[in-house]
Each structure stands twice: as C-alpha cells, then as structure tokens.
Design a protein around this nucleic acid. Structure first.
Lengths: 340, 340
DNA sequence: CTGAAAGCGCTTACAG
DNA sequence: CTGAAAGCGCTTACAG
C-alpha cells in the first residue's frame, strides 16, 4: 500500500509536512503544496483509517444501532435509516450498521473497540438497555425514540401526545363521538416501545375529556392476520364513525380492507393516522394523518451528534446539555375525514 | 482507555502473552491464562480496533454498498440487507453501510483507507462502475446481481431466465395463450438493471417458442401511478387470460387494483410473479410465484466472501476461481392460476 | 511456555 | 514555513 512516507519522498518533503497539508492545520507554501498534491494524485494515496484512528482517537464513523423486529413493519424502519445515512455522509462520516440482537452488548463492543465516534440509537424502548450502555461509553449518542430515563442523553422524537390531541380534536370538531383506535400489536407494548403507550394513552385520555368514546384494539403484526383483525374490529363497532390507525402494517392494508368491507371513506367512516409522506406515497395511502417526519428526525439527530462529536469541552458547553427534542405534529389533510 | 499494557501489568505477564492469549495463536499455561482472563474482565478490556487494523491489515468489517433508487421499492432492497448483516455478524464481521450516490468513488475511498476487508455490492447493474473499482481493489468482493463483465468477481443471483421459463411453462400448460407482462419501470431498464432485461427477454423469447402472445408493459415506480397504470394495462388487453408481474411496487398494489377492477383470480385472470416469501407475507400477496430467495443469496454471498477474506493464496486456490452462481427458480403455488 | 523489541501508518508537540 | 522524533495500541517474528 502507498503510505504517507511514499508521498513525502515523491514530493521531497517530510512526512509531517504531508500530514499538515492534508489536515490544513498549518500553513504550507504554494510550491510545496503543489508538489504534495501531485504526489498524492500520482500515487493514489489515501490515509490508512486504522492508523489515523490510532493516532487521533477519531474514526469518522458513526454507529447506527437498530433491530428489525418481527412485529414491526420493516419498510417503516427504513425511513429512518436513509436520512441518518445520508446526513452522516454529507458531514463526512461513514455508517457502521449494527443489528445485533443484544444491542447493549453490541454497543459496548463497538465503543470499547473504538470503532465509532458516536452512536445513533433507533427505535429506543421505554427501558432500553442500550441507553445505560450508552451512558457508560465515552462516545456521545443520540436516541430516536423516548426512553423513560433521559438523563444525560439527546433524544429526538415526534410529540406523540400532541399528535394524539391533534387527531382527536380534528375528529371531535367534525362531530365524531365514537371512534375506533387501532394500536400497534400487543408485543410492541410489552416490549415497551414508548410511541405505542404515549399515543394510546393520549388518545384515550384526551377523548375522555372531550366526552368521546374510544374502542382501542391491538393491530396485528403480520398478514393475513392484519386484514382479518381489521375486518373483525370494524364488525365489532357498527356505531363508530371514525377510526384512528396507529400501526404501519394496518394502515398499509387498510385501503384493501375497507374496499372489501364496502366502507367508503369519509362517507361511512372518517379515518386518520400517523405516517410519513414517503410511506404514504409508497403505499398510496389517502388518509389525513400526522406527519411522522422520519427524515427530519434523522437529520436533526445526526446534525447534533456530529456537533457533539466534534466538540471538546468548550464546544460541549456551547451546545448546552443533552436534552429531549419532541417535534410538533403537523396534520396533512388528505380528505379522509368528514362530518359524523 | 484500558490497553493491553494495563492488562499485562495486572496479570503480571508481558503484552505479547496477553495478545497470544487473546488470539489463541500459541499455547498458554492454565495459570497464566486465568490471570489474564481475570485482568481482562476486571479492567473491561477490549482491543483497540484501529491498532489491530494497523498491526494486522485486517478490520473485521465488511462494506455493504447499496443505493436506494427512486424507482425501486425500498422494502424489497431491505430483504437483501438483513441476511447480509446477520450472516456477517455471525461470522464475526461488522457492516459498514455505504449509500453514496457515486458508488465507485465510495468503494475506492473505503478500500483505499483500509476500512473494510471485503465488499458486498447490492443491486449490481449491467455496466456497474463499482465492478471495475472492485477489480482495482486489493479486497475481495461479491456481487448480488449479474453485470455484463463477470471476469474475476464472484456473483450471486437468481437465474432470471430460468425463472421466466418456469413461469411461462406453468401458464402454457394451463392453456394460456395471451398474457400480460408487467416489467420494472422504464428507468430500471435504462439504468441497466440486469434482472429487468434478463427476465423480460426470457419471457418474451420463451413465449414465442411456445406460440404465446405477450403484451409487455412497464410498471410505474410510484403510487398512485402504479395503480393507474395497472388499470390501464388491464383495460388494454381484454383478451389476456394471464398476467406475469415483475415489479415489486406493482405486485404489492395488485390485490387492491384487481379488487377495484372486479377481476377475480384465478377465475378471470391467472397471475404469477416473482417475490420472496417474506415480501409476500408483508404484503399479503396470494400469487403463485418464483421465490427470489434474498435470504439465501445474501447468506451465500457473505459466506463465500468471508472465506475469500480469510484465505491467503492457498485458501484462495482451494476455493477455486471467482465465478457466477445463479440459483435455480423454485415455484411456490399459491393457487392464483387456473385453466385459461 | 514466555518476553523484549520492532514495526504497522499515521499525528502532533517541539524545535528551528 | 518545515523537519526529526515520539507516541497511539496492537501483533508477531525472534530468542530463550
């Protein structure tokens, strides 16, 4: 392989001068810089990442910790992976994608080995063991998803409680008084996925204060169960005039199910949901919904992470302490709601 | 950070002994090994990956090169990512996920910097610039997808020509003589995605030898265009008794479209497709189809890659030269075809 | 069965 | 504006 020493020799300078030319950390004469640039180009030199990591304790890699759960809809997860990856590259970082079943152990492994400068934790649960592991690491990390204990960590998430109120208010204003709520599958609640609890509790609680009835049902994780359960839920509540769907698999299947069921939207039933613009486009979903903004969340998270990684102590103080960032819900009206 | 020197001091041995205890490359007395293990555990030692990479020229990282194209269905791509990631971890490798727009430059960047020991190229196109870049790299690589020039590279892919013949034969045996073929979007062909050309050419060619008529149409890339185009295609060929769908977005939308269109399967129309078991389950697809086996392809590719990375020259010769591996199509009958 | 030492390819004070 | 040298944390011949 071609090393910095080869470049130095070809350019007739010392290795330190090549290094400084590369990093820009001190002034180099035009003539010297030209010779170095030529040598680098001619030899096709790229600094050895391992040697740089050893010398600087920086890897220019961020770890992306995620899991593909059986009970979650994979296309939805992907929505978060892409903006994280794209933003990291724009800012000069590569992505180490870690999908180990034991996320906490994997986190300790890659930070212990100094493989990454920082971490993005996706799909964080209420009692996520990765969060404690992150606190024990030297590297900064950002979470997407809100755990119970947010001490010392940066969190980005949608404000699910506000999203619930927005949707319930929307239906209430149209005169709906009895609504169905399709939640994520039961396993998602058991696992402690905070979005499931936060949204359901807020829907049920806010509806109560408005005097609305809510029939909450778990969605299913997999087809064909998803469709079967939706049919059964619709049959069980003939009096309901509205439906709130908080489950990616269910909302993707809903157009087909409603069609089969002979239910017209919004004439027979008003439907609202939560999903991203891209998800809606992929599945041709015509429902009025709160935008979940995976793109924005991913970008914000990586932006902050990179600033935290870059900063020494001074920078850290300028950034302020870690904290929770809930982005407000934005309702996109797609015409799937009408008067009760 | 805790280094191998700290462990050596705590265990009362030399650093080399600790290193050998870790690698198992020479015999260590039980007593010494016990003291080293204790020290490692007490201190929480993990070897520094950068230092190891520098000393050994091995990173234990595999680069996964992929792109999310606007005109491809993201959930389908994910099918390949998971088995690659899982298999790599089982074999002791982490995954560097690279999604740069310029894949060839990214490949040169990460190999030049010695960030990976090997590469998996996903979604390889006919004239993929990444393949030439791979040939210029020291690191071995495997392709998923068949490029025009396969010299010196390992390739894994479904045998799309055989898949086409299997499906056409299946329809022909049932008496179908006029069939619709929905191909990937036109852009996928322009980009040179080999699966698009290979499958379409084989369907059209084989049907001709059997005396069947094929109406080939491009599918659309995005909703709601996907559904609109399917409706239009169905209207255009009232005499067709069968449909072959080779487009992930279209097949996912098809149940809804056929339902809206009042077409019963297989009574009014026999439908066959290509998709994986998981994909079919996610979208509740009831169609007889050739299994695309992303799981098997991903596993086979990484298995071979790891063996190539492990091997010195001797191992390389034992493995045989690089080559093309096309896995045979397996038809899963889901009852969506009947007599013409 | 174990140790002392060279070397992997960088970066960065230190010195001029 | 530039260079000589130490040091980052490992591995591995070499020697015993």
């Amino acid at each position: 392989m071609v090393t910095i020493g080869d470049v130095a020799r070809a350019a007739g300078v010392s290795r330190s001068t090549v290094s400084y030319a590369l990093s820009g950390k001190r002034a180099i004469s035009d003539e010297t810089r030209r010779r170095i640039d030529d040598a680098i180009r001619n030899l096709g030199f790229t600094p050895h990442a391992g040697a740089q990591a050893l010398a600087t304790s920086r890897t220019k890699v961020v770890g992306l910790m995620l899991r593909f759960h059986e009970d979650e809809f994979a296309p939805a997860m992907l929505q978060y992976v892409l903006p994280v990856s794209d933003t990291a590259r724009e800012l000069g970082y590569d992505i180490l994608m870690v999908t180990d079943a034991d996320g906490a152990a994997a986190l300790r492994r890659i930070t212990g080995a100094g493989k990454v400068d920082g971490l993005v934790l996706l799909d964080v649960t209420h009692d996520d063991p990765r969060v404690a592991a992150l606190r024990g690491a030297r590297e900064p990390g950002v979470l997407i998803g809100l755990p119970s204990d947010t001490e010392g960590v940066d969190v980005f998430d949608l404000d699910f409680a506000a999203a619930a109120r927005t949707l319930v208010n929307h239906l209430h204003a149209l005169g709906h008084r009895e609504t169905i709520l399709v939640t994520p599958p039961e396993d998602v609640f058991s696992r402690g996925a905070p979005y499931s609890w936060r949204f359901r509790d807020a829907v049920v609680g806010h509806a109560r204060t408005l005097g609305m009835t809510v029939h909450a049902h778990y969605g299913e994780a997999r087809q064909p169960g998803i469709a079967h359960s939706l049919h059964a839920i619709l049959d069980a509540h003939p009096g309901a005039t509205a439906m709130v769907v908080h489950n990616d698999g269910s909302v993707a299947a809903l157009p087909m199910v409603l069609h089969e069921h002979g239910v017209r939207v919004p004439h027979d039933l008003s439907v609202v949901s939560l999903y991203s613009h891209d998800f809606g486009r992929t599945f041709a979903l015509p429902y009025t919904a709160v935008e979940t903004s995976p793109d924005e969340l991913g970008r914000l998270a990586v932006d902050l992470l990179v600033r935290r990684m870059a900063g020494g102590r001074a920078e850290g103080e300028r950034l302020g302490p870690p904290g929770v960032n809930l982005i407000p819900p934005r309702l996109t009206d797609r015409g799937s709601t009408g008067p009760a």
